[in-house]
Design a protein around this nucleic acid. Sequence first.
DNA 1: TTATAGTACTTTGCATAGCATGGTACTATT
DNA 2: AATAGTACCATGCTATGCAAAGTACTATAA
Lengths: 111, 111
Amino acid sequence: MNLENTKAQMRKGILEYCILSMLSDKEAYASELIRALKEAKLLVVEGTIYPLLTRLKNEGLLTYRWEESTGGPPRKYYLVTPLGSKFLTELDNTWNDLVGSVNKLTGKGQG
Amino acid sequence: MNLENTKAQMRKGILEYCILSMLSDKEAYASELIRALKEAKLLVVEGTIYPLLTRLKNEGLLTYRWEESTGGPPRKYYLVTPLGSKFLTELDNTWNDLVGSVNKLTGKGQG
DNA sequence: TTATAGTACTTTGCATAGCATGGTACTATT
DNA sequence: AATAGTACCATGCTATGCAAAGTACTATAA
């Protein structure tokens, strides 16, 4: 049995929520997001986050602007669109429901 | 954008935790589990739960016994093995860490 | 100039798990 | 015999996280 794999599965679908939420506070570029996610003990790699950002942009939930960097290649600063903000509200509810359901089933709630 | 799909993704990997936890309290068969999960607002269908139970059994986390039913086909009653119980403890920690991480990133925690 | 290192963005292919769908088998009712 | 309800099982699809490799820009060192 592989605990790491199970952990990875638990993270699935939650990254999308976290990233939308992070970008609703202030814009950021991918490497910044990766650092923040790692600090929060959520392991994320480039191959995960770049396709995810592109997908959210194509769906109209995010937009971005280029910004030159003094010490490296230019950066893509992403931010949430009005549609993304609306979707984030629904994800907030979804997440809260999910936590409630799991806590109930695992006996932490009123279960 | 498809909210239902995102919800399904969020559920990924969490079912395994929920089912192990439910079966650590008392044994149950698949249809019982489905009913309980639906009551807790976690949408689950047969095509999801049967392969999952088989997988957990093959990994030694669950075992089962047959029991005849008066009004239908026999039932497979699953229960958690000692190995499954040990694994469940780790999933408890994983889940708590995940909730902490998400709440921190989405600004519900200490920010 | 050339080479190396650091940063940032991109793409490809794989493994996994949830799900839709259809099927089998047992019992009870009509 | 036919239908309905319950329970278990198998197949194929899809989406996502991830490993790995690649591209491009800047700064530093030889």
